[in-house]
Design a protein around this nucleic acid. Structure first.
Length: 927
RNA sequence: GCUCGGAUGGUGGAACUGGUAGACACGCAGGACUUAAAAUCCUGUUCCCGUUAAAGGAGUGCGGGUUCGAUUCCCGCUCCGAGUACCA
């Protein structure tokens, strides 16, 4: 019988699904292992060959862990709320739920074809009410929580209310809005219900506040910072502007420090850890007050370089700074106003693009230097951002390049403050020298000056050490339809939660998926949608990241109606042991998930500080486009003649994308090309060596570039096992690489060789029960060891090569011994599950039981290198191979090598300085 | 600009803690089997010189260093990719 991947793969896929082979056991002594894939958004385009890369890797790992005796949880689901389905709904009127359902079915079919070992009984969909019920429930927990800095964790809002009742706001040390009030216990009790709620809102982890947001007019919604890339929206690339709006936000900044510290405890790729670190952006410095005689409080600035404080020659406020109007003198008012107007008109994109031009305006006001008391002029400029620190900086032109440029442009003084500075051409921020022009820190080093300054500023009540974070709270509301409704209604303009037993708050039906005429979000169109028939519901929905910020818990107990997951399930499965997905989620999903995980832990729902212990990023698979070259005529118009790639320089041609599916090894199938497009029906070709060679280029995989390769097509031709092996063979998992089908034949050939090991020349199944010989054991044990090492370090590509070597060796040995072959297919099973299940059954084993077989143990005895010749170099240059008996000790090796004729001849009487031994062998002779 | 990653044959890539660079696969060339094709198998394939064979030399982006020995470690540079962007 020949290797027939088509019937064989379908057979086993059905078998696994019917038997529920991959359901983890509920009661078991086995240790648990949780392998998770980042679940996909089911887009209308379906899967291309790039998508399953990470899924294949995680599947190999899961199957391997099962073989090693673990109880493995390996689930899959869909992140099914999102913009594309809604955009489609706007265009066609089709309900997003229908589009989503269709797409999910398509995804499922494609995923099934690849033979993954998911436990589909645990599937989750974030857009299902029985799932988003719990997303809403978590929102409620966060609404009902505040962050206590004294205990360094989130607590129920009740503990805050209690503190207010007992002692007012004095002893409360919380992360909150800046405008919180100070009040006594009596005052608190005297507050009206409304006043109390208004105040509590400033402490809640999920809160409503007027804030500056990224508004995307084209999408009709606000976006979080991570959804804005280079000043345009991540989805669609539409312009984004800053706008003040009442918005739901998540107080993720409360967790800034814990999110940062946690990074040291998890096994994640360094670049990703670095990205999160930068995003959180912790900077240690000081906040310093510059008194302004006419203003109470003065101007507070944040600086990471207090040591340069004597170099301050002016202060710069962001144009939006709240003190600007009050400070501006009458003479300067016109200038300031026109500057503010000018900057307000600039879009985010303009402001970013234009970092070269120096601009600013003088307010006419002066602040007092906190240490010298001299007058410091106050300016405004758009290089200072309102959103970071205090929106004000102390400018030290000698130490900061932006301040330097500004000072030069407006002719402000530049005072050197260190004897090691060179400020002829530009600012010099070095910290190496000793201070000059710096009052009482003159002569000190950086390390001496900083504590001295902080101490002095604290004495004066004008400054203190301070830590600042770049990260902002996350905007949580979206003015869109296809998302989780926020379980909140409004009474007297204040938000209140609906009752827990009223969950889920279902997404109402609307006539159109567009904003209302009055500019309200689409939910404003829902008729009679009122809480208790009288109160308005919140009309914005949750952002895309809400549903994905806790989904790994739901897989543990997906049908639970009483809890987001049962206590037992959460205690058993704990955190995700291995998480595989793309690095594009570094500052979005992966940060928000860590945040929610920590908050849920603080509130007592589980015990894991970090949700994902180990994380691997699979590299993106890019497309590899093929081109044909259309000959141009005199007028530069395209003709119907096409020139092969190698000859195109001799003609005037126009490159055209051609469907990669009619190109094989870069050779165009000219017959298929003629039916590719109607106008190519009479195409003629200028060939080289009788072939039409196409040009190539690496680009993103997309329909318009005709470079999309569908996994279904590959599976049809070569089978799922070949696809799985080939995707791994393509290169290191974490590396980005173009998809290229050129080498797939090699992998397919390998599987046929595996098949043939079990069959005789006539194609009949034939294995022998003879005892294997030593060489056969050696080949087997080598692969067992190699695969184990490779999988443990996620080097799947090298395993595939090792399998090929092993099977070539066994083929050369004409090995058909049961004892060898059975172990071989167990080890191969994670990579190529279908063919191995088939062979397992052919060997007479109970079908399907391979999943629970023991991973074979390699035997070190067979791994001893039995080479009789080994290389010796002289002074690092390879010179000769020496024959040598195996079991000599170091002394004997030394004597034998030095006595060797060739060595003698090469040494030519020169004295041997040193012999370099590695693992008991002489590697090098130094003369 | 800053941060991080990368550069190895015609191609994808291997070399794990410094120890025979180029495993494995594709492609290419030649051969066997076949009426022929497909499939399968064998041989060769870093470059230069040379060739019946051998022998020799160079070689992991470039320049230097450490070392008996460097694709691997260190310093400087070039190019490519990713992230980030006036963060005080």
């Amino acid at each position: 019988m020949e290797y027939n991947h088509q019937s064989l793969e379908k057979k086993w896929q059905h078998f696994w699904s019917d038997k529920g082979t991959f359901k983890p056991s509920e009661t078991t002594e086995k240790p648990k292992y949780y392998v998770l894939d980042m679940f996909p958004y089911p887009s209308g385009a379906g899967l291309h060959v790039g998508h399953p890369l990470g899924y294949i890797a995680s599947d190999i790992f899961s199957r391997y862990k099962r073989l090693k005796g673990f109880n493995v949880l390996h689930p899959m689901g869909y992140d099914s709320f999102g913009l594309p389905a809604e955009q489609y709904a706007i265009q066609t009127g089709q309900h997003p739920a229908i589009t989503t359902e269709t797409n999910i079915n398509r995804y499922r079919e494609q995923l099934d074809n690849i033979g993954f070992s998911y436990d589909w009984s645990r599937e989750v969909r974030t857009s299902n009410p029985d799932y988003y019920k719990w997303t809403q429930w978590i929102f409620m927990q966060l609404f009902n929580a505040w962050y206590n800095k004294d205990t360094d964790k989130a607590e129920s809002i009740d503990t805050l209310i209690n503190a207010f009742k007992v002692s007012g706001s004095v002893y409360v040390n919380a992360v909150s809005d800046e405008d919180v009030q100070q009040f006594t216990a009596e005052e608190w009790s005297a507050f009206s219900e409304e006043e109390q709620q208004r105040e509590l809102l400033k402490y809640r982890l999920a809160y409503l506040r007027e804030s500056t947001v990224n508004w995307c007019a084209a999408l009709g919604t606000v976006l979080a910072n991570d959804e804005v890339i280079n000043g345009v929206s991540e989805r669609g690339g539409h312009p984004v502007e800053q706008k003040k709006m009442m918005q739901w936000s998540m107080r993720i900044t409360a967790y800034a420090d814990r999110l940062l510290r946690g990074l040291e405890t998890i096994d994640w790729p360094e670049p990703l850890v670095e990205m999160q670190r930068n995003w959180i952006g912790k900077s240690v410095g000081a906040s310093v007050k510059f008194p302004v005689p006419e203003q109470v409080g003065g101007i507070e600035v944040f600086t990471t370089r207090v040591d340069t404080i004597f170099g301050v020659s002016f202060i710069v406020l962001a144009p939006e700074h709240e003190l600007v109007d009050a400070l501006t003198t009458d003479e300067q008012r016109f200038e300031i106003e026109s500057y503010k107007e000018k900057t307000a008109k600039k879009s985010e994109l303009d402001r970013m693009a234009d970092t070269k031009t120096v601009s600013g305006a003088f307010t006419g006001a002066y602040a007092k230097h906190p240490l010298t008391g001299t007058d410091v002029p106050i300016w405004i400029a758009d290089y200072v951002l309102a959103g970071y620190g205090t929106g004000a900086v102390m400018a030290v032109p000698s130490g900061d390049q932006r301040d330097y440029v500004f000072a030069k442009h407006f002719n402000l003084p530049i005072v050197p403050i260190s004897d090691s500075q060179n400020i002829e051409e530009e600012a010099d921020p070095n910290k190496d020298g000793r201070y000059i022009n710096s009052d009482f820190i003159n002569g000190m080093t950086y390390a001496e000056a900083v504590p001295a300054l902080i101490e002095r500023l604290e004495e004066l009540g004008l400054g203190k050490a301070k830590v600042n974070f770049r990260m902002r709270d996350a905007i949580f509301g979206r003015q869109r339809y296809w998302g989780e409704p926020v379980p909140v209604y409004f009474k007297n303009g204040l938000p209140y939660l609906i009752k827990e037993e009223e969950l889920p708050l279902l997404l109402p039906e609307v006539d159109k998926y567009l904003p209302t005429e009055t500019g309200e979000p689409p939910l404003g169109r829902a008729e009679d949608w009122k809480y208790q028939n009288q109160y308005d519901y919140e009309l914005s929905t949750m952002p895309g990241w809400a549903g994905s910020s806790w989904y790994w818990f739901r897989y543990m107990d997906p049908t639970n109606e009483k809890d987001f997951a049962s206590k037992e399930a959460v205690d058993y499965w704990k955190a995700v042991d291995l998480y595989i997905g793309g690095s594009e989620h570094a500052t979005g999903h992966l940060l928000y998930s860590r945040f929610w995980n920590k908050a849920l832990k603080d509130l007592g729902y589980h015990n894991e500080e970090e949700p994902f212990k180990k994380l691997i990023n699979q590299g993106m698979i890019q497309g590899r486009s093929n081109f044909v070259y259309r000959l141009l005529n005199e007028e530069g118009k395209g003709t119907n003649t096409f020139v092969s790639h190698g000859l195109r320089d001799r003609y005037r041609t126009l490159p055209l994308h051609v469907d990669v599916n009619i190109v094989h090894n870069d050779i165009l199938n000219t017959e298929k090309f003629k039916s590719f497009r109607p106008d190519f029906a009479n195409a003629e070709f200028i060939l080289e060596d009788g072939k039409y060679i196409c040009g190539t280029e690496v680009e993103k995989m997309s329909k318009s570039k005709f470079n999309v390769v569908n996994p279904d097509d590959i599976i049809e031709t070569y089978g799922a096992d070949t696809l799985r092996l080939y995707e791994m063979f393509l290169g290191p998992l974490e590396q980005a690489k173009p998809w290229n089908t050129n080498g797939i034949e090699g992998v397919y050939k390998f599987l046929r060789k595996v098949w043939r090991l079990f069959h005789d020349a006539e194609g009949n199944f034939a294995v022998s029960d003879e005892e294997p010989v030593k060489a056969e054991y050696k080949a087997l044990h080598k692969i067992i060891k190699k695969v184990e090492e490779d999988i443990e370090r996620f080097s799947f590509n090298t395993s595939v090569s090792a399998f090929m070597i092993c099977v070539n060796e066994l083929t050369d040995l004409k090995c058909n011994k049961r004892k060898i072959l059975q172990d071989l297919i167990i080890v191969l099973q994670p990579y190529a599950p279908h063919i191995t299940e088939e062979l397992w059954a052919l060997l007479g084993n109970e079908a399907g039981t391979i999943s629970y077989a023991e991973y074979p143990v390699f035997n070190p005895e067979y791994l001893v290198e039995s080479e009789f010749a080994y290389p010796v170099s002289v002074n690092g240059k390879m010179k000769m191979n020496l024959p040598l008996a195996l079991d000599l000790d170091q002394k004997a090796v030394e004597e034998t090598v030095l006595a060797n004729k060739d060595v003698q001849r090469y040494l030519d009487g020169k004295p041997v300085k040193k012999l370099i031994f590695v693992k008991g062998k002489i590697i090098n002779i130094v003369i």
